[in-house]
Design a binder for these strands. Sequence first.
DNA 1: ATGGCTCAATGGTCCAACCAATTTCTGCAT
DNA 2: ATGCAGAAATTGGTTGGACCATTGAGCCAT
Lengths: 244, 244
Amino acid sequence: MTEFGLSPIQATARDDAVLKALAGFVMREALGPGQRLPTERILAERLKVSRNTVREALTRWEGLGLVERRQGSGTYLKGVVSLDMLHMPLTLAGGNDFTSLMQTLEIRRALEAEAAALCAVRAGQANLVEIGRKLDIMEQAFHTRAGMSAEEDWEFHQSIYRASGNPLFEQIIAAMHELFHRFWEHPLGVRDFGHASFPYHRTIYERIAAHDPEGARAEALKLIATVEDDLKRGAAKLKLSGQK
Amino acid sequence: MTEFGLSPIQATARDDAVLKALAGFVMREALGPGQRLPTERILAERLKVSRNTVREALTRWEGLGLVERRQGSGTYLKGVVSLDMLHMPLTLAGGNDFTSLMQTLEIRRALEAEAAALCAVRAGQANLVEIGRKLDIMEQAFHTRAGMSAEEDWEFHQSIYRASGNPLFEQIIAAMHELFHRFWEHPLGVRDFGHASFPYHRTIYERIAAHDPEGARAEALKLIATVEDDLKRGAAKLKLSGQK
DNA sequence: ATGGCTCAATGGTCCAACCAATTTCTGCAT
DNA sequence: ATGCAGAAATTGGTTGGACCATTGAGCCAT
């Protein structure tokens, strides 16, 4: 078996061409997240392709999280689209068991700490205001609803990832978060989960606002540690009650 | 092959249901990479859905790199499929520029340091032997080929990720590595890239062997720092020579 | 064996409907 | 005029059927 430096040519590339044309359109019109793009029927007509082909192309973008489709309403941009984008779909084998959860938490620990530190260095005034706003909302929800503030909690963290200046943090941790939730919907765990982690949200914010990267990193690590403890406690309880 | 263990689909959320059914089928039949799955027409018939729906579902999997379609031949598995998989579409705006590279490096810095620290805690004797072997091979290749040891270098790092006890490290960093390489094959960078990072490979190994997590983390951070410096130097050189 | 031929199988594209969710418009009651 | 329920238009989701382009297997003459 000898090796020739040849790679297969791309025979048909209809939907790829559609995506390239669409990306060009999005850039020319300067469309951003949240904005609606033309209907499938219009795209099919303008691009002189079948609506099926348009749909396959949009399905690709939807899978990449670039676009969101709402039946009866339209197709909306979810992220920034440009012609030279690099896509890397990563699929991990993640089970719904305790071990998988702890593994995702180890990843999150590494990334959360780094993101907090970077954020402390790079966050501008606008970022700080936004993070502070999310923190206030979360704290208020925590007090009025007695600890049920998972959604607001998540938005607070997301605002930090965004302010880190590196979109990869948000993308990776978002996937971890989804896996986490998939487990958690099956509410076999501890009752008031994020309770112990609550105070650290404000300390993280304070270290970031003070532009203290190592302090922010330390507080983020403390936060994750409490979550790991909660998880271990929940797992121990499960083991005692002898679940399947 | 006439009988496929597939049963019809229920109401809404068609293509998601199709994928779930297909994933179940793949697992029951214990299909692995390279094997062919049923034709679109057969799937459509067995699942009682239209062929277009089957195609949209398969387009999703194709976008995730789980499957490869060959016109006139069939659809083939490219990766391992299981029911609970974690999909993580990573998107970098402006693929081939310096910024994207630095962003992947920031992720790698966070994960590499954590993996080294975990490895120092968890690595058993067999892991240490394997890592040491990879280190020797790398060092030898480095000396005989005057610095060209990218492949051996990568294998050394991989052995650390594996010994960390968390498969997610290897999977995520491998994706970053691939992204990194896609740029660097276009050899616009510095000539002897990993040169400065060379000595830290052994120091990392020593700290791991000594079961010193914080020491291993520190050495890993030094290593990444040298790579970042190399990258910055390369970018500065490019800027001087005024490339497009 | 080799090369060329046919031919069936398979993914790729197209079309013309209809369904289901959503939005927009309309017209009536107040 | 205003408010609101119901009709109509809009839009993504699905269907079935048709045809094209590529692949691969079988066959045959050389």
